[in-house]
Design a protein around this nucleic acid. Structure first.
Lengths: 350, 350
DNA sequence: CTGAAAGCGCTTACAG
DNA sequence: CTGAAAGCGCTTACAG
């Protein structure tokens, strides 16, 4: 019930509170004798500095807030776990701020501010320029994960989404898909748009016009419903690029439920390379986007930003690479992409 | 860069800092006029009370720490999300402390203490009596999720694991499985032991002796390897109860990879009823354990404990109910459990 | 290297 | 209802 404070330790060690503080501050001056005495006293009493008090007066709370979505996508869950561990390794704790769908990040940012977080990592929701201005004014570093914002001092990490879209388009063309389509999460999702763009642009250069579909809503079943709709539409696509594996996996399910063969009737490509994508039941072709590199970049950006709060914002693009598995046909038996003349169709929906 | 403090608001409103504090404290006395002026001033200045300072001096930090594992099991991820949202609804934030496997919870508890958390929720790792004594001394409420500990003042929530095991055993017997087996996460996992116990005891009463297997290690692929071993063993089981869906889903994969039919060659039952269990590709029979009720019980226990810190520990058991799907045979064509004479076998491993 | 003093931003008795 | 004072547990210049 009664916390051991710095005063208790000071008394026990026969020194001043300042001395105790210095012993517990890396890089502060304390004589070996003082250090030894303080450490011994602290150990005897079971003292640990209050990070609340430290945070109030010092420059760091060792606290970072992350704004996250529902965690129903395994990618988000694995990302969160990896992030928490990487931060812990540098002695920083992670606080969660939940947001749903494309909702504003505002309340999450307020939460970060309320606790004087060292930084906020935005991995869900939509951030406005007003939001970033608020953070700038408060001296709160912002790191965007999977999104970008043209704002001073805001750092970001993203997959090379457009290139992923390009690789997906190439594979579909090389494996002789004639009716390519895209199934995304909706226009408000940043990465989704880039993936679509890279996909559509590449196909356009080849003279094809992919159909564009989107899940209605964010709940996990929405992807199944949307995929079912796509695959029962007239002019059913024979090649489907999904904005991520969570959607693609459900698309595979939907195809099977409709009695379609994958990849004979329809090829399916995801994004992220979730562990599940490699499961025997799916063997999903996808774009590998290592969570380790994402988290590594975030930590790196965080360290750099904290060392120099005034530097201008930096955006890192992380490469993705194709992992062809069993949900696409073998490319080596197909024709070169340039020789393909896909039949453009216009989607009924969207 | 410069935070708006209570003094700024006091000055702007022409009142004392105490008055401002009272306006922002629910249930404190302030005249309507004062309140109005303070609120207006706060709004003008964009003031928000520092929760760090509040936490330092007041009785609540509005912070709860959760000790979590890797989040590779979707159940954990969905639990974490639901927990964060439920806490947010009562104006409390969640801080993550990561632990791996059955590691001690100690450092997580220290983290909770360092930030003066209102409570710590232990959802991973192994907690000792010494740990709970530490928390008791520090006045930190502990709520155990999916584990139990005989310690004063420690609350806990668990599924009725033994009953789940019983239901699984019953189903296997009713569907004429003669060589039942259990595949768990290992002896150090609390819920795992209870599920095994309920399963084995029930079978014992029917004269059967199930084989017992465990995954080696916690990584997601361990379950696949273990299931493959179980299903290629001599006296291969024809009914497999897994300690949770994450394992059971991998067991289904392993069975298919071995060319076995589910449920013709082997019935498989999980635990949790993950969203994935209902996917067409799996249609996993399992025990439903609603995350909402788990989180609800935790919040309830938390509120009760905070209202009366001295009360004795309470353990809540949450019911689970069988959801038979396609990985078990139809019970209505089987014989009553009591009429079954299963052939007991002894497992090679474990 | 060390201690006394001031202060971080707030709340809580305490008088009025 | 209100303000002055003390204090939460710490750190940071400041003298010595």
């Amino acid at each position: 019930m009664s916390r051991v404070t710095i005063k208790d330790v000071a008394r026990e060690a026969g020194v001043s509170p300042s001395a105790v503080s210095r012993v517990f501050t890396t890089g502060a001056s304390a004589s070996p004798l003082t250090r030894e005495r303080v450490l011994a006293a602290a150990d005897r009493l079971g003292y640990r500095p209050s990070l609340l008090a430290r945070g109030l007066v010092g420059r760091s709370t060792h606290l970072v807030t992350v704004i996250m979505g529902s965690l129903s996508d395994p990618f988000d869950a694995l990302f969160l776990d990896a992030l928490a561990r990487a931060l812990a390794a540098r002695d920083t704790r992670l606080m969660i701020a939940s947001t749903a769908g494309g909702a504003p990040t505002e309340s999450g940012l307020q939460q970060a501010l309320d606790y004087k977080s060292d930084a906020v990592i935005v991995a869900a929701g939509t951030m406005s320029l007003a939001d970033s201005a608020l953070c700038a004014r408060a001296g709160l570093p912002v790191i965007l994960a999977g999104r970008a914002l043209e704002a001073p001092g805001v750092d970001g990490v993203l997959a090379d989404n457009a290139d992923g879209g390009r690789q997906a388009a190439d594979l579909l063309m090389r494996t002789a898909c004639h009716r390519p389509a895209y199934l995304g999460l909706g226009k408000t999702t940043f990465s989704d748009r880039e993936r679509w763009q890279g996909f559509a642009d590449t196909l356009a250069r080849l003279g094809a016009k992919p159909a564009e579909w989107a899940c209605e809503g964010r709940d996990p079943e929405a992807a199944f419903r949307a995929a079912s709709a796509v695959l029962s539409a007239p002019h059913r696509p024979d090649g489907l690029f999904c904005s991520n594996d969570a959607v693609a996996l459900r698309a595979v399910e939907a195809a099977r439920a409709l009695g379609l063969s994958v990849p004979e009737d329809v090829s399916i490509i995801g994004f992220n390379n979730l562990p599940q994508a490699a499961w025997p039941s799916f063997q999903l072709s996808t774009l590998d986007y290592p969570i380790g590199s994402l988290v590594g970049a975030i930590i790196d950006l965080l360290d750099t930003r904290l060392a120099d709060p005034q530097r201008s914002g930096e955006v890192r693009r992380l490469p993705v690479h194709l992992v062809p598995r069993a949900t696409t046909r073998r490319a080596d038996v197909g024709v070169p992409a340039s020789a393909v003349r896909p039949v453009p169709i216009n989607p009924e929906a969207l």
